[in-house]
Design a protein around this nucleic acid. Sequence first.
RNA 1: GCCCGGGUGGUGGAACGGUAGACACGCAGGACUUAAAAUCCUGUGGCCCACAAGGCCGUACGGGUUCAAAUCCCGUUCCGGGCACCA
Length: 930
Amino acid sequence: MEYEPKKIEPRWQEYWEKNKVYRSEEATGRPKYYVLDMFPYPSGAGLHVGHPLGYIASDIVSRYHRHKGFNVLHPMGFDAFGLPAEQYAIQTGRHPAQTTHENITRFIGQLKKLGMDYDWDRMVVTSDPQYYKWTQWLFIQLFHHWYDRKAQRARPIRELEEIFRRQGNFGYHEQLLTGNLEGIEPIFSGREWENFSSLTRASILMNYRLAYQSYAYVNWCEALGTVLANDEVKDGVSERGGHPVERRLMRQWFLRITEYADRLYDDLDALDWPESMKEMQRHWIGRSRGLLLRFPLNKQKEEAIEVFTTRPDTVFGVTFLTLAPENHLWKKITPPAYYPQVEAYCTKAIQKSERERQAEVRQVNGVFTGAFALHPFTGEAIPVWVSEYVLGGYGTGAVMGVPAHDSRDFRFARHYGLPIRQVVMPPDSAENQELTTAYEEKMGTLINSEFINGLDVLQAIEAVIREAERRGVGQQKTNYRLRDANFSRQRYWGEPFPIYYDQDGVAHTLPEDQLPLLLPPLDDFRPTGRPEGPLGKLKEWVHPAPGIRRETDTMPGFAGSSWYFFRYMDPKNQKAFAGREALEYWRQVDLYIGGTEHAVGHLLYARFFTKFLYDIGLSPVNEPFKKLLNQGMILGRSNFVYRLKESNTYVSKNLAPQYDHIRLHVDVNLVHNDVLDIEAFRKAVPDAATAEFILEDGQYICGWEVEKMSKSRLNVVNPDDVIEQYSADTLRMYEMFLGPLEQSKPWSTSGIEGIYRYLKRVAAITEKVDRSKSAPDEKENIILHKTIKAITKDLEQYSFNTCVSHLMIGLNQFYELETLHPDTLATYCVLLSPFAPHLAEEIWHYLGREGSVTHAPWPIYREEWTRDAITPYPVAINGKTRFSLELPADMSPEEVERTVLAHPMAKRWLQDRQPRKVIVVKGRIVNIVV
RNA sequence: GCCCGGGUGGUGGAACGGUAGACACGCAGGACUUAAAAUCCUGUGGCCCACAAGGCCGUACGGGUUCAAAUCCCGUUCCGGGCACCA
């Protein structure tokens, strides 16, 4: 058989689609397996060669599980709301719905050409009203629930109202995070609650809802005209577009993810995820245990500055306190003489953009308030400062300055001449040595510290916490770096909030039977620059009835992507986000494949949503993704040409150093194995049409370098082109052959020939099939069963690159045989089918098999055919391999030792020396020690 | 600065502590062909030796553990990723 991918690939793709070969259904009695890809954002650029890496891997796993008899769910969809489509709309005036639809169509076409086994009937698109109806529904559920810390789960807000009515809020009032600011609700009794106005009640309840509205400092991006979540900001600029981000106090919707911090942290342990990924989440959550300590402002102890510290042991080393500029306490304590300077400092610091603040990280600045607080243990007066190195959004927005044991405090104290008091002695250090830097290790012995003198750090921490609690000046507390998720965007292309406000400005959710609240048509997408998004321009939509105003914010990108894995289970359900039966059947994603860039954003939000749905009894699981695999990035492999300065002459790479030249990127599609196709180059680059070329060995050799894939570097490779030139099966196998899945690697087409040749050889080996053969002979069986064993083992370990090698080795060995029994090749086809499904299907049918190869059972190897009767024994003298012997595999170690020592080569190496020890590792190696 | 990964031929990469370099690319030589492409065969880590036989050196660097180390431990260095005033 000749390999004709252009003919067979479309043919089988059509066959699979027509016969619904990959359809998934619930409750078939077979075990289920749910394998998922991180769904793409359908960008205008289409798929590039890096995208499919993870998709191919999941496709292989999916197909493998089908062969093993699992009922597989392997869906695909699109994360279709988001900024790029809207930015494009602003530039071109084309509606995002339209461009998004076009892009999706293109993506689907590209994915289908890759021969993926997706069940397209289950496709979800987050911008589809039938989908976002349920995103809105979910938001409504979050709005109507609060988090009961005692029960550690979400409960209906009605139950909280009941509690308030009966007993007031005592015990439910502490440290609620609202926006970025933590606060304590004033305590009220049940009777007081009954007497509150409905407005007051609504605003109190708002502080408890899991989806709530609050004023908070947010990341405002002027250029994009919207706020951004913390994980959408990198290095003080927006992740998309790199625009500056400033801090602004705005009224926003938030999701109270912080209530789930402990569970999100603790439940990581049980997940089968890469350790690095779990670490990133742990860092992001940033749980730390410490002491909340009060420094009274006067002897009456009516008011105090509260600080949070993870180093209570250093409390006797405190020489100053520092407030964040956002902490309004300074207004209360600053004496009039100091007020103007302090006010000026705070105003300036707060207005600084994220970027400015980051740029000044190493610089020290601050201002003395003129006020003093009292040390809770010694009663000493401690000066209070304000400095922007203290963050308003973390802890209490105030720290105790211990310059001897904190490098920031040390820098600050040095700069402003504040005393430095050492209280921890490092192990093995001499006393009275002046500190030149802060000693921050949690190791050593306490000195100058009253009741904790002589204790080690860890003991001292516990002792101080106990003593602070006993004296009533503080209590143990766990703090989190994690902030509540900003859920508002002042943009058009996102889910509208199912929220309206009454005359009093109280927020109400739409009745569920009015969902979806459709995104209204609009043709001017430009941001307003005001807190109100583009939807605010639609006066009639915003005010559908007198006294009623709709929310004009829309939801962020992660709204739809945080729960899509549930929708795949039951994508057409009109009555629920997914039906009970489907949820119970598919439960959770068994394998999730995607990039590390979603480590904290998407994966954390998805876990949060799942836990919430679990709490309210809708999800049977409380973690969405059982196992997670990261695919590495596919990097570009750029090529370069060298043009002489001031001349239209290009010089080959190795001759370039002899000339004065400049290096230029050249389109990698004009280069093969680093040799420039000069004719193509002349045609593609107008300036080069008449250029001269200085060659080496008759060729123009290009330089190369690994860089990120990007248009400007001319190193983008489109999968369509690769499929056109070779085939989908080639691309699939080649991407797997490139190396371990999780490793980043450069894309280069050199090497792809090997895969293409292999596939041609697979097709050609059909010529060796002998249908008159009564049964496979032993040689066939040994090759086949070794291959089955190796591939099965490697697949179980997701080692796809070595699978491809083993397929090649098996084929090479088959070529050494005269004939093959049809069964042998059919079985080999099954092994091949996850990797090259089109060719496998073609040969399967060529051999006259019924139905799709997809449904063929995975072969089981027979152990006795995976072992050779004779095995090589390398013999080493003192660990150095000197010669090798072929011996029966089942020979006893004693006999091996005798045979080896009797061998003339052994005699030669030993000469007259007596072996001190002989180590025989059965079936492996012999080592003679002299 | 801190926390994770990772350094193996010209290239991508293999290697339960057990013959380092599987498999593939590239390259060289050969066969087929008028020729090219395609295909097939042989060789291919470095050094020494005319060849062979054989030997020596080799998994970033320096030590260690072990009969045996790319693999385990300690230190150094370089590259990639994440976090970065989180008290």
